[in-house]
Design a protein around this nucleic acid. Structure first.
Lengths: 145, 145
DNA sequence: AACGTTGTGATATTGAATTTCATTAATAAT
DNA sequence: ATTATTAATGAAATTCAATATCACAACGTT
């Protein structure tokens, strides 16, 4: 069961960092794992509030940060002023192809591009640690109209 | 003289849009053109204030928006919560290679990557209109330490 | 000069994200 | 177990970039 593994990772992370396993953190983790879409801290806050009326928004922000540190979540910035979070575990690195008309988002990966990126960085003496690539265009459906 | 050309572009843009040529807009344009680095609205505001003590910050924000619309500036988002602006005119499209240690930034362009990006988008039925690519790594100087 | 339009600057507002801090809960020590 | 220690929480305040509001000023036209 994958979720089991992710919870294990989180628990191990907390232990290693000398952080505590709290009901709030469990709840944040569970609700985050339960959905596959990109989600903002505020959206997740609304969701967890339904299960724990007293949870604070700061706790959700803090919790999502922890998930990132634990390698379970990753920040995604679509440039609309709100940071979103996506699953990291079980999802290989990928880039994003976004339709500027309907907002549809496709996760893409091109090994050839990845290789060239590394080579490009090295050409300038950089050792590449990570990258972000967002491709913006119009999807076939939107173009059909 | 390049600046002349850029001012001409701006003037033509204002005429075409039925907007007025004001001293504030001239000042914002001039001070923006005068520096080559990426600059934030707030930074530019501090600069133009030295020449016009009464200029408002909103005017600078609005002015930079106009420069973007006129094709003279482009927004760059390094993900630190502040939007920066770079020259667009006379600067072909390029991507960014950023050192995560010292913050050094290099403008890069790889035609092979550009081609593959287009192909990748088309593979998913998207017609690519633009893209953003940020490569993060450590430069040779920082690695030497 | 009078009018309508656009621009400006001061201020207020927004909205995401973070900080503060008193209180509460989890862990460790006894 | 009880207590002491430490970390986490929640409410509220704060930060900061960016935007909106609005009275007033500058301009252009007739």
């Amino acid at each position: 069961m994958i979720e089991q593994t992710e919870k294990q990772i989180f628990t191990e992370f907390l232990v290693k960092k000398n952080l505590r396993d709290t009901p709030q953190r469990e709840l944040i983790l569970n609700e985050f794992l339960r959905r596959e879409q990109h989600i903002s801290a505020e959206e997740l806050y609304d969701i967890v509030k339904q299960r724990d009326r007293t949870i604070g928004q700061a706790t959700v922000y803090r919790g999502l940060k922890l998930l990132c540190e634990a390698g379970l979540a990753r920040e995604v910035d679509f440039g609309d002023g709100t940071m979103r979070y996506e699953h990291e575990f079980g999802h290989e690195h990928h880039d994003h192809l976004v339709c500027t008309t309907c907002g549809k988002m496709v996760e893409v990966l091109d090994p050839a591009i990845e290789t060239l990126q590394k080579a490009l960085a090295e050409k300038y003496g950089f050792s590449l640690s990570n990258h972000e690539m967002y491709l913006y265009g119009i999807c076939s459906e939107c173009r059909g109209k």
